[in-house]
Every structure is written in C-alpha cells, then in structure tokens.
Amino acid sequence: MSDKKHNEVTRRQFLNYTLMGVGGFMGAAVLAPMVGFAIDPLLKGEKESDFVYIMDVDEITNEPQRKTFVIDQVDGWYESQVERTAWIYKNNNGDILALSPVCTHLGCTVDWNSNADFPNEFFCPCHFGRFDSNGVNIAGTPPTEPLHQYEYQITDGKLYLSGKSNPREEA
C-alpha cells in the first residue's frame, strides 16, 4: 500500500470531489439560463425614444403652455400609444423649458397657476407641493427636486420632445 504521509487524495475523497464538481456544474448549467431570463429587464438597457413635433419655437411664450403629445410606447410585446403632457415656456433667461407635470414628491399632477393663493407657480393639489416659475421646488413644501425636463430637440424652428423626462441638474 502507498505511504499515507503525503497528503494523498483517497479514492473516496476523489469520488466525492468529482461528484460534487459535476453536480455543481450541472446545477449551475440548469440555473444560469433561468437567472439570465429573470434579470433580462436589467440587461436591456435604456430604450431609445422618438422625438415628436410639439409646436413652433416662436409660439413659445413666457407663460407656460400645456401641450399634450402622443408617443409610441413599447412594453415588451405590447405596443401602445400613450399621451404625455408638458408645460412649455421660456424662462427669463430665454431658455426653453418643457417640464413634466409629475410632482417630484409622490407623482401627482401639478398645474400652472391653478391656486389663487400661489400665483405664477406650479401647484400640486395632493400635498400642496409648489414649484416656482422656473419649475424649481419651493423650500418648505413636500417636493424634493425640481420638475423634470423632457428631452427636446429644435430643428428648423420646430420643437420636438421625446417621451422621456429627466431630473434637472442645473437647478
């Protein structure tokens, strides 16, 4: 018989390791595709969204105008058209703002100049959230950040919006 002093792997250990290895490999091979299957939404990444014509740039006033537009929405196998709303205006610096009406507190819909107590502000009726004429949240009211800004393009004096609105960095 062989000398046991060297750390030799016994036949039993060898078979154990082999079986565990093969078993582990088989288990992983079964599970891996399923994990990928389940986390697919994370792997898909950002979706491109088309830009939709809204209005001519010279129609944009300093007073926010409420514009609705329709975008094509793809939800997996389900394609549909959904309506979006934007408040479009030029602020005092002449920047074009196309703000989402979704309150940054809990997602209700804000309205411009709708509350007599708070003129020239965006007002959210749910929890009295307020945003100033630049769409920036007013301290002491529930919202935690400015109204989101739609991605926009201007071509040949025409304003186009995508269905995607992003948090604003500059404010």
Binding site: A38, I39, P41, L42, Q73, D75, G76
Partner: peptide, 17 residues
C-alpha cells in the same frame, strides 16, 4: 432603480411585463 426594474420588468412602465 435596479430593484424596481427587476420587479416591474421595465424601468419606466407598469404594464404587460
């Protein structure tokens, strides 16, 4: 954000998926 996407099946939409 990842948890939401994982639960809802889409980063933005609460829909078919």
């Amino acid at each position: 954000t990842e948890i939401k996407t994982l639960l809802a099946g889409d980063p933005e939409i609460v829909g078919a998926q």
